[in-house]
Amino acid sequence: MDDFYEFMDYVEDEGYIRMPRNIIRDMENPLEKYNNNELLKRYRFSRETIQHILLNLVYPAEPFIDQRGLPICPITKLCVALRFYASASIQRVIGDTGSMSQTTVHRIIQEVSENLARNLRQYVKFPDRNGMNNNRNLFFEIGGFPGVSGCVDGTHIEIKNPGGENAEVFRNRKGWMSLNIQVIAGPRCEILDIVIRWPGSAHDSRIFNNSAVRLRFEQELLTGLLLGDSAYQQTHYLFTPALNPATRAQNLYINAHIRTRNVVERTFGIWKSRFRCLATCLQYKLRNVVRIIAATAVLHNIAILRGEQHVQEDFVDRVVDGPPVAVIPARENAIRAAFIQRHFNI
């Protein structure tokens, strides 16, 4: 052994170049195994964003005391959940790729979803006053509709039959079980507000009328206008399309309304195509379904905030026909007519 060290000293003294040391990568760690493009296709996020989510949201202080029981490292847990959100693969298939049981994958998805859902109000919220003014300017650039703070609509996410006496209230107009999720979208297709508790049979207008965001607009804690389709009731802050337009101003209003409100439809498309689990039937208990939906809403806004590339894939959303057109009282109809006359009578 002494001869070996003497030889190494001789090599260094003589200026010989050492061979580079081989680095053995951990191939079980997806961040080591895949490049950024491959990570985006499989997990919808770049390496830097996955590390950000891991360190700041899911496992900010994961203890590593010992190796008893062959514990799964936090980065593997996070990537298992992200793979499920992105691909909606069967748990057993995801487990086979990582040498895990189906039960372990189920427990990981539940754990990560719960940790992400706890950050819902941190990432899914209306901006401050300056941010609201900026949003109104961006909305105006999209469709020429003044004063818009957000666009509201509902989307259905399929679930398994929850069973019990009240199971049928989850059956929507198309005949399948779902949750009707209310979303208010911003101009960058970010989610500003989300309601995840109503069954598929609930009408969009009923969900909005019972929501906290409606109360905040009523009390003027939130300012500006919301745009909704004809299923919603016209108010002084929520504007709906003008049916059977007869004047040029009404046609301009409808065109601006359609172009601007299309933001919420694009939001649903990006959200569900980025996280394909939302476009399939979620085979979980209702509590876990709510956590998964909330977790993907958080991840969606993080992706927009950090400028993550959206992987374009073929996607067809299952659209549920809206409820009958809401009857507009004379006072609300007059409010809309005055707004059209003031802003679109060019």
Results as ranks from 00 to 15, higher is better:
A326M: 05
A326D: 06
G322E: 14
I328S: 04
N301M: 07
I328R: 06
H310Q: 03
H300A: 00
V320Y: 12
R318P: 07
A330I: 13
P323A: 15
Q309P: 03
I302Q: 08
D317P: 05
A297L: 09
R318M: 10
V316T: 15
L299F: 06
A297E: 08
E308Q: 09
Q312S: 12
R306P: 06
V327T: 12
R318Y: 14
H300V: 01
I302P: 10
I328E: 03
G322P: 08
R306Y: 15
V327S: 14
P323D: 15
A295Q: 00
H310I: 05
D321T: 13
D314K: 06
V311A: 00
G322Q: 13
I304F: 07
I302V: 13
Q309H: 04
V298H: 04
D321C: 10
I328H: 02
L299C: 08
A330L: 12
I304T: 10
P329F: 10
A294C: 11
V311E: 03
R306L: 15
F315L: 00
R318K: 12
Q312M: 06
I304S: 06
G322F: 09
F315I: 01
Q312W: 02
A326E: 08
L299D: 05
G307R: 07
A294K: 13
D321N: 15
E308C: 01
P329R: 11
D317I: 12
A295D: 01
A330Q: 12
A303E: 04
A294N: 11
V316I: 15
V325P: 02
A326I: 00
P323K: 13
A330T: 12
V325I: 06
A297V: 06
V325D: 05
V327A: 14
V319H: 15
L299N: 03
V311D: 00
H310E: 07
H310Y: 02
H310F: 03
N301K: 04
N301E: 06
V298T: 03
I302T: 09
R306D: 13
H300P: 01
A303H: 05
V327P: 08
I304G: 04
R306H: 15
R318D: 14
F315R: 02
D321F: 11
I302L: 15
V327C: 11
P323G: 12
A330C: 11
D314N: 10
A326F: 05
A303S: 11
R318H: 14
T296Y: 04
R306S: 09
V327R: 14
D314W: 04
P323V: 12
I302M: 06
D314T: 07
G322Y: 10
I304P: 00
H310N: 02
F315K: 01
G307L: 07
A297D: 06
V316G: 04
H310K: 01
